[in-house]
Simulated assay, not measured.
Amino acid sequence: MRAVVLGGTGYVGGELIRLLLHHPKIELAQAASRRLAGRPLRLAHPNLRHVRHLAFTDPADLRPADVLFCALPPGETAAMRHRLAGLADVVVDLSPDFRLRDQQTHERVYGPAPGRAEAAAAFVPGLPELYRDRLAGARRVSVPGCMATAAILALTPLAEAGLVEGEALVDARTGSSGSGATATAASHHAERAGAMRVYGPAGHRHEAEISQACGVTARMTVTAVPRVRGVQVVAHVSPRRPISRAELLALFRGRYAGEPFVRLVADRSGVHRMPDPKILDGANFCDIGVAADADGRRVVVVAALDNLVKGAAGGAVQSANLALGLDETAGLDFPGLHPV
């Protein structure tokens, strides 16, 4: 099967290229970039210096493929949707263009998007842990945001069990790669290094995705931390009834039993007794840990993942595997590194 990556010079595009180059069933046929058309991949992704048979392709020269991965800035996939439909049987979009079903919510969060609503109805959320049956054979896939993915996986077992009372509070921390490859004043090393900058104290755009997927009202705060990769969310929930840690563990084990890329972290002691994105660099896992107050009236769920892999490119490949009828885990077996 042939794959094309559109938006190949960004960090997410680079991870898509890396994963597809080692995929056992999908061949990376083209990676597109206007700026670097005709130039080797290593100019944007120096870790791919050994890949000498591929250079970036101008987007105007894309050829039909079995699957097209779109890693474009907000608004661009939606604007190109009619052309993209003729390029591949399966289109996997990693932008926010088709994540939200409700048009008014999308426009409130992302701004005007004429004609988007009709196209959005065809997209299946690219989160296999919730939508595996719908992803099988899907032709349009929209991958959730990285912090939204972690928060949704953290809250889903509680929400499905009807245990969430009132709002769910999500405290998220993210590394600098989540801001993309284009430099900004906030990504300048002198400003970013060593900082823990609360840049999303209230009303973050991922709240709508989390609320849509979990059926609860989510409130999120986001802090930029001194890491390149990684997302960690700490979700605080007031349960409808007191619940113990043992019950929580049973609930989460039952919900994610058999999930190839969700790991429950249940150690009571030690350095790694709660999920930490540090050991997930390059891996497609989401690690989840739970805790409860002694009286069982407050639940804390911690989830961690690599924002560029499980939170983006890895989630996209996992979803594409299902859509194409392949082994869901194909090309995604890297376990992460320790120590780093």
Rank of each mutant, 00 (worst) to 15 (best):
A55T: 11
Q103R: 00
P260H: 09
H45S: 06
L21S: 03
A190G: 12
R268P: 04
H236V: 15
T174E: 12
H45F: 10
R99E: 10
R99I: 12
I26P: 04
T223R: 02
M274P: 01
G325I: 03
R42N: 08
L322M: 03
G115L: 11
G14L: 03
L28A: 05
G180F: 05
R134Y: 09
G166R: 08
G289N: 10
R197E: 10
D281K: 01
F285V: 03
G111V: 13
A3G: 09
G254Y: 15
A172Q: 12
A148G: 02
A88W: 12
D89W: 00
A29S: 12
L248F: 14
A120K: 00
Q212F: 05
A37C: 06
L68Y: 13
C214S: 01
L62P: 09
P24S: 03
A88I: 13
A148S: 07
S176G: 05
Y131Q: 02
G315K: 00
T149I: 09
P96S: 02
E76S: 03
R52Y: 12
K310G: 00
A120D: 04
V299C: 10
S179E: 11
L62A: 11
L130V: 02
L20W: 11
S238D: 15
R99D: 10
Y199W: 11
R263W: 11
R227A: 15
L280S: 06
G10Q: 06
R35V: 09
R42C: 13
A85C: 04
D66H: 02
N321M: 01
V51S: 05
G230S: 07
V225I: 15
H23Y: 13
L324G: 01
P226R: 04
V90S: 04
L153D: 10
D281Y: 03
A185N: 09
H204F: 14
A266Q: 07
E118M: 02
G175F: 14
A313L: 03
L158M: 12
V216I: 14
L264E: 09
D133M: 01
F56Y: 14
R192Y: 15
V233I: 10
R42G: 12
G331K: 00
V290N: 09
R255A: 14
A266K: 00
L87K: 05
H106W: 08
V301G: 08
L72W: 12
T174R: 04
T223L: 11
L264D: 09
A185R: 10
A172H: 11
A202E: 14
E165G: 04
E107L: 04
M220T: 13
V12R: 01
